[in-house]
């Protein structure tokens, strides 16, 4: 396991990026002329404005037609380009899953799909909340699945994605997104796990948006002198089984936190890894339960699902028996 700890995080002055994908996509398109940013009538809502303005040849709009988005993208890759298909996570996965699996999942060519407003990061309950996307895509053989935690990692992961073979699904961030990682020390590498807080006691494993929530809970645990550590796992597939197993077996209790159903997501993944070895620690999976989440603002939904910082810290403490 890598021996990093909080030096991977930016110090107090954490900045907020109000339109992360706008800058990330623009930087990528100015550097890589083979990349085509694709959208399905949501470019405004995924913040793809500057590419449309400055590199119109590198933007392709297919209208509100997500099945077509993914299959046209697969065609674009077969003509020698690198498509980055963007829409909300619910449409990228649920609406166009077969196209994703068949057209992209069986191809050796790079096909990047970004699902925005995943999990409960969308206020419109049920139809807009994709709390099963990670599970769906990690079931596709050879797919790559990445859930970045902040604007910095989002950019680095996308830069890596356009050079990977086959289907790459990643979750996107939009709107005010914190830059939590220290750009000087942090470098995204596919499959690597990152220890953001060092300690013994209870082990917390988180991914994506939920790593932000975990950090908030860790702040509370720290104030209360509760020994813990935090492992951030941005790569859901191909997952680093060895690092996760080492981490889990170094703790007596492990809690996973994800912006995803506790069925089929990160918690399930960690449990699969540990149960393959046997006699491992107990895994407590926190996230969206297997019921319909409520709608509304993110703070409200987190509170209802007991995923806000205070309730998360409380649930972690309960697991640790403190």
């Amino acid at each position: 396991m890598s021996k990093q700890s909080d030096y991977l995080l930016a110090s107090e002055a954490r900045s907020i990026n109000s339109a992360p994908f706008d800058g990330i996509s623009h930087e990528l398109c100015s550097r890589r002329k083979d990349v085509i940013m694709m959208s399905a009538d949501l470019s405004k809502y995924t913040q793809l404005d500057s590419v449309k303005r400055d590199f119109p040849d590198q933007h392709l709009e297919v209208g509100m037609a997500e099945q077509n988005l993914l299959s046209v993208a697969a065609g674009v890759s077969k003509a020698g380009f690198v498509p980055v298909a963007t829409t909300f996570a619910c449409y990228a996965t649920r609406r166009a899953y077969d196209q994703m699996l068949v057209c992209m999942g069986t191809s050796p060519l790079t096909n990047v799909v970004i699902g925005f407003t995943p999990g409960i990061a969308n206020p419109a309950r049920i139809h807009h909340q994709a709390a099963e996307d990670l599970g769906m895509v990690r079931a596709i053989p050879n797919a790559t699945v990445i859930d970045p935690m902040d604007a910095t990692e989002f950019g680095q992961a996308l830069n890596a994605a356009v050079d990977l073979p086959g289907l790459v699904y990643m979750r996107g961030h939009r709107g005010n997104t914190p830059c939590l990682l220290n750009t000087g020390h942090y470098q995204f590498e596919l499959g690597k796990t990152y220890q953001l807080r060092g300690g013994r006691g209870i082990g917390i494993i988180a991914t994506g948006h939920a790593t932000q929530w975990a950090l908030e809970a860790c702040d509370i645990l720290e104030q209360e002198n509760i020994d813990h550590s935090l492992l951030h796992v941005p790569t859901i597939k191909p997952v680093n089984e060895a690092e996760i197993a080492d981490y889990c077996f170094a703790h007596e209790q492990v809690v996973t936190i994800e912006n995803h159903q506790i069925v089929t997501g990160l918690g399930s993944l960690v449990a699969e890894i540990v149960s393959n070895i046997g006699r491992g620690p107990r895994i407590t999976r926190l996230g969206v339960p297997n019921t319909w989440a409520p709608g509304g603002t993110l703070p409200y939904i987190r509170e209802q699902l007991e995923l806000d910082a205070i309730q998360l810290a409380k649930r972690i403490k309960e697991v640790s028996g403190e």
């Binding site: 009538d41 405004k44 709009e61």
Partner: peptide
Amino acid sequence: LGATGSTATTL
């Protein structure tokens, strides 16, 4: 009209 503007332009 769609989410990003005129459907005549989008598709």
